[in-house]
Amino acid sequence: MSIEQLQLDLIDYAKSIGVDKIGFTSASPFNELKNRLKRQQELGYQSGFEESDIDKRTEPIKLLDGAESIIAIALAYPSKMEDAPTGKKGARRGIFARASWGIDYHVALRERLKLLEEWLVERVPGVKFKSMVDTGELVDRAVAERAGIGWSGKNCSIITPEFGSYVYLGEMITNIPFAQDSPIENECGDCRLCLDVCPTGALVEAGQLNAKSCVAFLTQTKDFLPDEFRGKIGNRVYGCDTCQTVCPKNKGKINWIHDEFKPDPEIAKPLLQPLLHMSNKEFKSKFGHVSGSWRGKKPIQRNAIIALAHFKEEAAVPDLINIMKKDERPVMRGTAAWAIGKIGGPLAEDALVGAKDVEKDEEVLKEIEKGLMLVMER
Rank of each mutant, 00 (worst) to 15 (best):
N303I: 12
G102M: 02
V127M: 12
N250I: 05
N186Y: 00
I343S: 01
F24S: 04
C188P: 07
A74H: 00
A91M: 09
D53T: 08
A142N: 03
P85T: 06
E313W: 02
E59Y: 11
K370W: 09
L43D: 12
V237S: 11
N322H: 15
K89V: 13
E363V: 05
M373A: 10
G207S: 06
E171M: 03
A211T: 06
N255S: 08
I233S: 12
L33T: 14
M172N: 06
Q7N: 07
K62F: 05
A91S: 08
G371H: 02
L374S: 07
N250F: 06
L275Y: 03
I11M: 09
G292F: 02
L352C: 07
A72D: 02
T86I: 15
E50M: 15
R39T: 08
V317M: 12
P85F: 04
P161V: 00
R36N: 09
K15S: 14
A67K: 15
Y166P: 00
D241S: 13
D357K: 14
F49R: 14
G148D: 02
D65E: 12
S2F: 07
S69E: 02
R230P: 01
K312T: 13
K262I: 14
K286Y: 02
E362S: 13
I267G: 00
L113S: 06
F311W: 11
G23F: 04
K366L: 08
E82R: 09
I343N: 03
K249M: 14
S26N: 11
K360S: 11
I321K: 05
Y238A: 13
D357V: 06
E145P: 01
E205L: 07
I343A: 03
V167I: 14
F261G: 01
N175A: 05
L113C: 07
P161H: 11
K366T: 04
P270F: 03
K366I: 04
P299L: 10
G94T: 10
D223F: 03
G231Q: 05
S26L: 09
I73V: 14
A97R: 01
S152D: 07
E32F: 06
L276I: 07
R378V: 03
K249V: 00
R39K: 14
H310D: 15
E118A: 12
P125K: 10
A108N: 15
P29E: 01
E59Q: 14
G94N: 09
E363W: 04
F229Y: 15
K88F: 12
S293T: 04
P199T: 08
F30S: 00
V133T: 12
C156M: 15
A67I: 11
R123V: 06
P226A: 02
T58E: 06
I3S: 01
N155S: 08
E377G: 04
S165W: 11
K114Y: 12
S182L: 13
W294T: 10
S157D: 09
A142S: 09
D181Q: 08
D264M: 01
